[in-house]
């Protein structure tokens, strides 16, 4: 069953056609990678899923409900969490607080005026956050202020912030961009580990090593259109894909 269905999406930026009749269907429980050369429209497509950009035409449905016209917080409350290209975390707050905030957002909804009780009263949230930090390997840093974390740790933290919400769909925008090989491998291992939870994931990625280690389905985007879709083995041998990469922008 398709959890996310994108049909006939078009998006123009002035004279540039960023997305041209994109069709995409993400099956529940899969890890769906979207790859493509620079400027292919991958990030634009992702931004259309989360309400940051409105496509000129087309539909985006998540579990049968349209996502178009919804605010980012409404899309998140519907069960879509997102990891950004550069980790977006609460830099001035502690690591534990960073994980507790999404948990509160999940438990209390988009707004709850709870200005009287101490946060520490809600031990169940705190315990869940601590457990998750343990799982992603940040337990020792839980009291640290986030701005002091390394890039790899920030990425791990951002993943934990998404996971604590038990999303139905997790969007990952270049989760290993700018990381060292060691950090990249750590992230792959972590993503494999959380794969056991059965969360549907959409990954946008440059790094083929990451894509072929994780993806169960791959869509190739070039110049705003999907030129190929299939299992990793099929994509690897597809001549159109090779042309898009080698004949297009050289990496």
């Amino acid at each position: 069953m398709a959890i996310l269905e994108v049909s006939d999406i078009n998006k123009r930026f002035g004279g540039l056609k960023a997305l041209d009749k994109v069709e995409l269907s993400v099956e529940e429980g899969t890890v769906h990678a979207i790859i493509g050369p620079n400027g292919a429209g991958k990030s634009t497509l992702l931004n259309c899923f989360v309400g940051r950009l409105a496509p000129d035409s087309g539909t985006v449905t998540f579990k049968g409900k349209s996502l178009l016209g919804l605010q980012p917080h409404e899309i998140n409350q519907a069960g879509v969490s997102r990891v950004f290209q550069t980790p977006e975390i609460f830099e001035d707050l502690s690591v534990l607080d960073n994980v507790m905030i999404p948990a509160f957002a999940k438990a209390d909804g988009a707004f709850k005026f709870n200005a009287w009780h101490r946060i520490s009263r809600r031990a169940e949230v705190r315990d869940e956050a601590s457990d998750l930090l343990e799982e992603v390997g940040l337990a020792d840093q839980s009291k640290m202020i986030c701005s002091a974390l390394s890039r790899g740790d920030k990425r791990r933290l951002e993943l934990a912030m998404c996971l604590i919400q038990h999303p139905k769909l997790l969007l990952l925008d270049e989760p290993t961009a700018g990381m060292s090989r060691a950090d990249t491998n750590n992230t792959i291992d972590l993503l494999k580990k959380i794969g056991e939870r059965g969360i549907t994931k959409v990954i946008i990625e440059h790094d083929m090593h990451v894509v072929f280690s994780l993806a169960t389905t791959i869509s190739v985007l070039a110049q705003g259109t999907v030129i190929a879709e299939g299992k990793p083995e099929d994509i690897k041998g597809d001549p159109r894909v090779q042309e898009a990469y080698l004949g297009g922008v050289h990496q």
Binding site: R82, F84, P102, K106, A110, M161
Partner: peptide, 9 residues
């Protein structure tokens, strides 16, 4: 920005 993507209005 992050807070909005975390589901908070």
């Amino acid at each position: 920005n992050r807070l909005q993507y975390t589901g908070v209005n």
